[in-house]
């Protein structure tokens, strides 16, 4: 299942979750996105990549959805590592993504 809307898209393919566009929906809108993340993690991938290089903006509810729906879920799967590919072009990523390291240990963050 992929999610494609006018302002953003979330595509899962070959163990890569790719989020693009501007994601600033209301908190209740994230419920299906969190479910989507949990479904992916529950499918038992050997490794997981989150590619947000083209995610220009994410609001605070989106940060919460990423943390709870994806990152904390990864922690429940022993041996699973999450790699996050970020862009230095987006200031919010530079300021916020490094703090995700506080949540789990098996996390790699790469800025390109």
């Amino acid at each position: 299942m992929n999610i494609k809307e006018e302002r953003y898209s979330i595509v899962y393919e070959n163990n890569v979750i790719k989020i693009s566009g501007k994601l600033s929906i209301m908190p209740e809108g994230y419920e299906r996105i969190e479910s989507f993340f949990k479904e992916i993690v529950g499918s038992g991938p050997a490794e997981l990549v989150l590619d947000i290089r083209n995610l220009e903006y994410l609001n605070s509810s989106g940060i919460k959805a990423l943390c709870i729906g994806l990152i904390l879920e990864v922690e429940t799967k022993e041996g699973l590592w999450l790699n996050i590919r970020c862009s230095k072009q987006h200031r919010w990523q530079l300021e916020t993504v490094p703090t995700f390291k506080d949540l789990i240990e098996n996390l790699n963050i790469v800025f390109e």
Partner: peptide
């Protein structure tokens, strides 16, 4: 132990989100 880790994760998430909101 699992619940404790979950609570700790949620607390850290809360910190991350409030820090982010504060900056916004």
């Amino acid at each position: 132990d699992k619940l404790k880790r979950r609570i700790a994760g949620l607390e850290k998430t809360l910190q991350i989100v409030t820090g982010y909101s504060g900056r916004i």
